[in-house]
């Protein structure tokens, strides 16, 4: 099989030992099964995320993203830049578009890039991993490698914000995207239907600065998953995963709740469904253990 090549931009949280390292672990097997070759962009840098704006002005932030684009353009010509992290994808894509849209910005950006010995011609398209899966592989394609359907599991598909807005996945609505539910079905599980918090914001970077406010959001997201009979939440977003999983204990402490809802990445579900073991799926990287998923992963076919 000829593999499809992409310039891979992992992002800070996906580095080894970082908060989303298990995403990278799990996406590897998915890519392997689906004939996707991820080529890491050499010496990529932080995108500045959705919090860098406080200190960093527009041009410095654009330049950060332009550097990654320029590196991809230079080292991995002709390949789409792909990120697994919505914040990275969004920053990069917004930067790429803005450079084309606003007069003079490209020139200014290149003037700054020159300091790092780079130049961006503007040829690279920034995409999200889910876009690649849905648009380039397709749902049928994603279904083919399934050897161990996650039968009997009911999972709440929590899409969150940034894979969904403002760009989203082609053809999906901002308010009620369907792709994640379809992916849950593909791996043989049942999506929690009517899960109305699927695009609620988890608080994003404000989980650090405004914990009370963010945790209210997180509580809604988790409780609704319980209400709809889900035993697990799945998400395409690194920050969502971390926020929604990690702060449940805090909420329990403060509010006397007993939240213990595992939150995993779609790639982990796919890896398990594709026959991967718990390690392949990065299941060791959880604060709340996805026990049932682990059991399936551990089960021989």
């Amino acid at each position: 099989m000829v593999k499809k090549n992409y310039a891979f931009y992992p992002g800070c949280s996906s580095q080894k030992g970082a908060s989303a390292s298990n995403f990278v672990t799990s996406i590897n097997m998915v890519c392997d099964k689906l004939g996707i070759q991820l080529n890491e962009i050499p010496d990529w840098n932080c995108c500045s995320a959705s919090i860098g704006y406080g200190e960093g002005g527009l041009l410095p932030r654009l330049v950060l993203n332009a550097r990654n684009l320029a590196l991809a353009e230079q080292h991995l010509p002709g390949q789409d830049l792909v990120s697994g992290c919505p914040a990275c994808w969004l920053s990069t894509r917004e930067a790429a578009e803005k450079l084309h849209e606003v007069d003079g910005l490209m020139a200014e950006t290149n003037e700054a890039l020159k300091e790092a010995g780079l130049n961006f011609k503007g040829t690279v398209r920034a995409r999200h991993m889910v876009e690649v899966l849905v648009e380039d592989i397709g749902f049928e394609g994603m279904k083919k490698p399934v050897v161990k359907p996650l039968e009997g599991m009911k999972i709440a598909g929590y899409v969150g914000c940034q894979t969904n807005r403002p760009f989203g996945i082609d053809g999906e609505s901002f308010e009620n995207p369907q792709y994640l539910d379809k992916m849950i079905e593909i791996v043989g599980a049942e999506p929690a239907s009517g899960y109305e918090q699927k695009v609620t914001c988890c608080g994003g970077a404000l989980a650090f600065s405004e914990p009370e406010k963010s945790q209210k959001q997180i509580r809604d997201i988790v409780e609704s998953a319980y209400d709809h009979g889900a035993e697990m939440i799945v998400t395409p977003c690194q920050l969502c995963q971390a926020n929604v999983e990690v702060y449940q204990s805090e909420i329990n402490k403060k509010k006397g709740t007993k939240l213990a809802m595992p939150v995993v990445y779609y790639s982990q579900l796919m890896t398990v469904a594709y026959g991967g073991n718990p390690k392949d799926a990065g299941l060791d990287g959880h604060v709340i253990q996805p026990e049932r998923l682990r059991q399936i992963a551990e089960r021989k076919k």
């Binding site: 970082a18 298990n22 002005g57 950006t109 020159k114 300091e115």
Partner: peptide, 28 residues
Amino acid sequence: AKRLNPMEILGGHKCKDAGGIKKMLAKA
């Protein structure tokens, strides 16, 4: 869960061209 590495305090991940990046940001 290996998602927070205490060794990072000693240095951790960084870009090879951290210097270039600094200059680039200052220019921007």
